[in-house]
Design a protein around this nucleic acid. Structure first.
Length: 467
RNA sequence: UCCCCGAUAGCUCAACGGUAGAGCAACCGGCUGUUAACCGGUUUGUUGUAGGUUCGAAUCCUACUCGGGGAGCCA
């Protein structure tokens, strides 16, 4: 007797084995020919295992005939080649035990499809659906690829803090972290101006959930060469869109001795590797997304694999937009930020493929991006892909102490508050670069799913921290 | 946060000023190596909440709540 996953029992070489399989019922079809068919899924793969349950089972009438979606079973039987189309193997059950029943009157998941909006209200049960099983397995594969890709390139996986006291990057609103009482306690009003007295707080100063591990990653890159973070990130921005989460997972590589061109080359190789691995390692999941979610998915991904990412300076992109003849909702002009409509036009209409825009006006970008020789632009880059828009943002970092301090002042920041960060430029400074990408954005792009709340198991968005 | 759209049976929707219906699910039965099985029958509602207009409101008006799309911010 061998314990087999559904995946293992579906393989042709499982035929002939006596097996023990466990899983949850997807559907049951009865045949008066003297048996029932049960579709069993245990999450190990996209497909179900067909169980043939003969009426001679002792509990056929009492248990098997009552099985509905969601019931958990243990089945012993022989794996045989299936005589019918639809599956290679099937298990002829000699015994079926119900581990946990699921009352069909109240179990919310049915055989038919459900809207994603409805499934979000039962996020604890939606992992049992085809779509969320596929997303979850794909998410796992992408995570594995991230680690493999960077390790093959000599990177070290580092862990930057979740709690940070540096309110520094202007990367959106931060969540406060405090042990001070919300009201009533003396420490909540005894600070300067009648506000909280943070000297009495846990960290002795205001603290927040991180919005990026970049600054700390720079410190480690300036010692270990190539590093990357991959962890949760928090934004308290009141963004209600299908592309934003309050808690998401971000991947941030940071490389010493990389200039912006090296950075672009790495970003392009990284994106392509993620696509290639998804297609090779998750073929059933990707086929499912192509068939059920987005019929343009496969050609779009394959086109990206086969293309060279166009590298276009911001200044040139603005000129293209200005003479495009399009009517824009938002104005186009040098010094203005590119809007989503502009980015989409560039990557989808004009170039028809991935585009890396770079050298943006210094006024549009944060203090840490390296100022170009022209003095007007900085070494920033955004990778745009069809269907999604911006998927990666990165830059070469400003390694010159004086320029960096000046840029801080220019943006209203006090260099004294960034002593440790400036130290990286004071002692042994080197050119370095990095970028960031959100895991959930990557999953949207890979799966063709439309809403970011459907590519993470338990999404956190404004007003929502259920489950 | 702003602009649109929506909320009716467990799910997806119809009824568009005259008193709520279909498909699916569920339940009962039939049939079949079936595979989103099929065929017949049965059950299911404070029409999101609170007000208002009206002889009469699911339907019109107001507010709120929730959901979706777009925008901003961004990853």
């Amino acid at each position: 007797m061998e314990k087999l996953t559904v995946w293992a029992a579906r393989q042709p070489d499982a035929v002939g084995k006596m097996a023990l399989v466990r899983g949850w019922v997807r559907t049951r079809r009865d045949s008066k020919g003297g048996f029932s068919f049960i579709e069993l899924n245990d999450g190990s793969c996209q497909g179900n295992l067909q169980i043939v349950a003969p009426a001679t089972l002792a509990n056929y009438e009492s248990d098997v005939k009552k099985l509905g979606p969601g019931a958990a079973l243990t089945i012993t039987g022989e794996v045989k080649a299936s005589p019918a189309k639809g599956q290679v193997t099937e298990v002829h059950a000699s015994a079926i035990a119900v581990l946990g029943s699921a009352d069909p009157e109240s179990y919310p998941l049915q055989k038919k499809g459900h809207s994603f909006e409805f499934l979000r209200t039962i996020a604890h049960l939606r992992p049992r659906t085809n779509t969320f099983g596929a997303i979850t397995r794909l998410r796992s594969q992408v995570s594995l690829t991230v680690h493999q890709f960077f390790h093959e390139q000599g990177f070290f996986y580092i862990h930057t803090p979740i709690v940070t006291a540096s309110d520094c990057e202007g990367a959106g609103e931060l969540f406060k972290v405090t042990t001070l009482p919300l009201e009533g306690g003396p420490a909540s009003t005894s600070g300067p101006g009648g506000g909280p007295d943070f000297s009495k707080d846990f960290f002795g100063k205001p603290a927040f959930l991180t919005v990026s591990g970049q600054l700390q990653a720079e410190a480690l890159a300036c010692a270990l060469g190539r590093v990357y973070t991959f962890g949760p990130t928090f934004r308290a921005e009141n963004s209600n869109t299908p592309r934003h989460l309050a808690e998401f997972w971000m991947i941030e590589p940071e490389m010493a001795f990389f200039d912006l061109e090296d950075n672009m080359t790495l970003a392009e190789a990284f994106i392509k590797r993620i696509i290639r691995d998804a297609l090779e390692k998750c073929p059933e999941e990707m086929a499912f997304f192509h068939e059920r979610v987005d019929p343009t998915l496969r050609p779009r991904l394959e086109a990206i694999l086969g293309s060279d990412f166009r590298r276009v300076p911001y200044t040139e992109a603005v000129a293209l937009l200005e003479k495009s003849g399009q009517s824009w909702e938002f104005p186009v002009g040098w010094g203005r930020d590119l809007q989503a409509e502009h980015e989409r036009w560039l990557t989808e209409k004009h170039f028809g493929g991935p585009v890396i825009l770079f050298d943006y006006p210094r006024t549009l970008k944060p203090f840490y991006m390296r100022v170009n020789e022209d003095g007007r632009t900085v070494r920033a880059m955004d990778v745009l892909v069809p269907g999604v828009g911006e998927i990666i943002g990165g830059s070469q970092r400003e390694e010159r102490y004086d320029v960096l301090a000046e840029r801080m002042r220019e943006q209203g920041l006090d260099p004294a508050a960034y002593g440790w960060y400036l130290d990286l430029r004071r002692y042994g400074t080197v050119p370095h670069s990095g970028f960031g990408l959100g895991l959930e954005r990557v999953l949207l792009f890979l799966s063709g799913m439309a809403n970011i709340r459907d590519v993470i198991a338990f999404p956190r968005t404004p007003g929502h921290a259920e489950f």
